[in-house]
Design a protein around this nucleic acid. Sequence first.
DNA 1: AATGAATGAGGGTTCATTCAT
DNA 2: AATGAATGAACCCTCATTCAT
Lengths: 209, 209, 209, 209
Amino acid sequence: MPYKQLKKQQMLSAARRLFTEYGFEKTTMQKIADEAGVGVATVFRYFPKKELLIIEVVKEVIEEMVPRFEAISESTQSGYDKMDAILDAYINYISSANRDAIILLESFEYYIAYNPMEEPLTEEIYQTYTKVERIIDQAIQDGIQDGSISLSSTEQMNATTILNLFGTAIKKHAFNSLLSNVIVPIPTKEQLLQLKSMLLLYLKNASRH
Amino acid sequence: MPYKQLKKQQMLSAARRLFTEYGFEKTTMQKIADEAGVGVATVFRYFPKKELLIIEVVKEVIEEMVPRFEAISESTQSGYDKMDAILDAYINYISSANRDAIILLESFEYYIAYNPMEEPLTEEIYQTYTKVERIIDQAIQDGIQDGSISLSSTEQMNATTILNLFGTAIKKHAFNSLLSNVIVPIPTKEQLLQLKSMLLLYLKNASRH
Amino acid sequence: MPYKQLKKQQMLSAARRLFTEYGFEKTTMQKIADEAGVGVATVFRYFPKKELLIIEVVKEVIEEMVPRFEAISESTQSGYDKMDAILDAYINYISSANRDAIILLESFEYYIAYNPMEEPLTEEIYQTYTKVERIIDQAIQDGIQDGSISLSSTEQMNATTILNLFGTAIKKHAFNSLLSNVIVPIPTKEQLLQLKSMLLLYLKNASRH
Amino acid sequence: MPYKQLKKQQMLSAARRLFTEYGFEKTTMQKIADEAGVGVATVFRYFPKKELLIIEVVKEVIEEMVPRFEAISESTQSGYDKMDAILDAYINYISSANRDAIILLESFEYYIAYNPMEEPLTEEIYQTYTKVERIIDQAIQDGIQDGSISLSSTEQMNATTILNLFGTAIKKHAFNSLLSNVIVPIPTKEQLLQLKSMLLLYLKNASRH
DNA sequence: AATGAATGAGGGTTCATTCAT
DNA sequence: AATGAATGAACCCTCATTCAT
C-alpha cells in the first residue's frame, strides 16, 4: 500500500512541479512521466485522463490550504481575532514557499474557464472553495455575537464582499509574481499588513461611524 | 489603403471575438480566418505569428480602455473627484458590454505567464498597463495638492496599493463571471459602489484618524 | 478542381489498396499518407476521421459495382435473361481483378460489426446495398410478368432467399480466396456456372413440379 | 490439477464471451482477466500470446461443433438421411444459443485474414474445418452406395460445392444477425427449411433429369 | 503459482506555419 | 496580394506484454 501510494505521490509531485512552472497546457503527460521517473503508461494507470491528474493536483493543493483556515475557525478566539488570523494566513501564504500553491489555484481558474469539465470532477473543488468563504462569514458572525465585531446586517454583506475582493486580489498578485517580466506592481508584505489593519479597523468600527 | 486597413480590422475583430469566447489557445488561426472571411494565409500575411495577432488584439483592447482614464486625469476636477470618477469607470466597466475587454485582458495575463514573449512585443502593453497606475497616482497627488485628499506620504503608498488591489480584484471577478459554473460569488454592483464609498472616505479622512 | 479531385482520388486509391491488403484496422493513416505520397495532415484534411475515409472507400467500391447490375436491370431482356446476366455478373466478379472490391466489402461488413458508426454515415451504403436486392426482386417480378419465370408467390420468396444466400456465399468465398493459407475449398468458376444453371432451371420450372 | 484446469476454463469462457460480444481486436487481455476474475499476468501464464488464447477459444468452439456432425456421420442412417440431418444441424445452429459459436467462427475467419499466424497454430483448426467437409462428402458417398442418393460423379462435385456454399452462407447470415443495424435481409428459418427441401430433392433426383 | 505494476511502441488527431498558385 | 493546400511535429491515450513481489 505505501509503495503504491508513494508512486502516486511521486507522480502528483512531478505534475505539480511542472504544472506550476509551465502551466497545465504546456505540461505534457510524457514530461510528467519523465520527471516522475516512470513510463507514460504508468501515469495513465493512475490518472486515466490528464484532466483527472490536474484535478487531483488541484485538490491536493486546496486540501493543504483549507485546514489552516479551519484551524482558525475552530479555535476559541474572538471573531475579531479569527479574522485577524485569517487575513494573516492569506498574507503569509503569498510570501511563503506555498506561494506555488496559489499560483496553481489561480492557474486552474483560468484553465477551467476554457476547458470545462464534467461537474462531478470539479464538484469537490468547488465545495472546498466555498468552504473558505463560509469560514470567513462564520468568523464575522462569531465576532458580531461575541461583540468583537460590530456591523449592521448591510455592512456585514459589504464586509464579506470586501474580504472576498481582498482574497481574490491577493491570489492574483501571487500569481502575477510568477511572471518574471511583469510590470504590474506587486504589493509589499508591509503594505498588505497595513491594509489588513484597515480592514480590521473597519470590522471593529464600521457601525460606529 | 482603407481596404487593407479594413481587412486587418476585420481579422482583429474576428480574433477578438473568438479569443474572448474560447481563449487564446483554443482559438485556431483557421477559425479566425473563417470568422473574418479571409484565407488563413492572409491572416499570416498580416500577423506572421499567432503571438503577434494576440498582442495586437490586446493592444486594441487596452487602447480603448486607457483614454477613459486619461480623460478623467486631464479633466479639471479636484483630485478627489477624479478618483471618484476613476473608481466609477472601473466599476462600470465590468457591468457594461466592455466586460469582454476585461476578460480578454485577464486572459492575456494568464497567457503570457506560460507563453513568455520577446520583450519588444509586450513592452508597449506593459507601458500602457502602468499608465493607469500613474494616472491613479497622479489623481491622488492632485487631490493632496488641491486639498481634496488628505494623506500622509505613507498613507499615499497604501492608497495606491489598495486601489491596485481593488482594480485587480474587479478584473478577476469580471473574468470569473465568464465561468458559468463557477461558485466564487460575484459581487453585485451595489456592493462595489459601497466599497467605492469606503475607499473615497479613506482618501478624504485617512490622516485625520 | 481536377487537381483537388486528383489528390483526393490518390489518397482514396492508396487507402483502398492498403485496406484491401492489410485490412482497415491494420492500415494506419500514416501508411496511407506515405502510400499516397502526402503528409498525414493532408489525409486528415480530406477525411477528418479515419472512419470517413473507410466509408468513402467502401462507397467507391459499391458505386463501381451497382451500375453493372442496374444496367442489367434496365435492359430490355426478359426477366429470366436478366437473372442469367445478374448471376453471371456475380460469378465474373470473383474471378476478375475486381475481386478486390468484394474483399473490401466483405471486410467492411466485419468491421462495422464491432465498430458501429453513426447512422448517417452508413445510411448511403446500406441504401446501395439493398439496391442490388431490389434489382434481383425486380428481375424476378419482370420474369413472372413476361412469362419467362414461373414461380408461385411462396416460391418467389424462396427464390429471393436462395439468390441472397448465393450472393452471400459468393462474396464470402471471394474473401476467403484472399487467405493464402486457407483450406476452405474455393469453388471453381465451372462449379459456380453449374450452380447458376441449377438456379435458372429452378426459376423456370419451380412451379411446374 | 482440476483447479488448474478450472482456472484455464474460466479464462477461456471469459474470453469467449467477450470475443463474441466485442470481437477479437476490441477485447483486451485485461478485460478478459477481469471477467475471469484473475490477474492479467495469469492469463499470460496460460496463454503466452493473445493469439494463443484466440486459437484455443476457436478450437473449443469447433470442437463442440464437429461431434454433432460426426455423430450423424457415424450413425446407421442412409446417406440421404444423413444429409438431411446434417442440413438440419446447420440450420438449427443459427437459431440456437450456439449461434454465438458461429459468430465466433466467422469472426475468426476475418481475423486471420489480416493477422496471419504461424502454421502450426492454425493447423489443427483447419484440420477440423475440413473434417466437416469430408463428412458431407462421405454422407453423399454413402448415399450413392446405398442408393438413397443418385448423382453422377460430376454432379457429386457440384453437390459438394452447393453444400459448401450453403454452409458458408448460413454462417455468414448468422454473423450478420449480430449487427443490429444491418439491412441485409436475414432469411427466416422457414425459408431455410424450404431451401433444405430443395437441396435434398436435388440429391435424390439430380441424375434423373 | 499468481498477480498487480510498469511500460514502450504505436495510433489517431490537431494546428501553427509554409508553399504554390 | 490573396489564398487554399500541404505538412511535420507534437499530443493524448491504449494495449500486449514483461517485471517484481
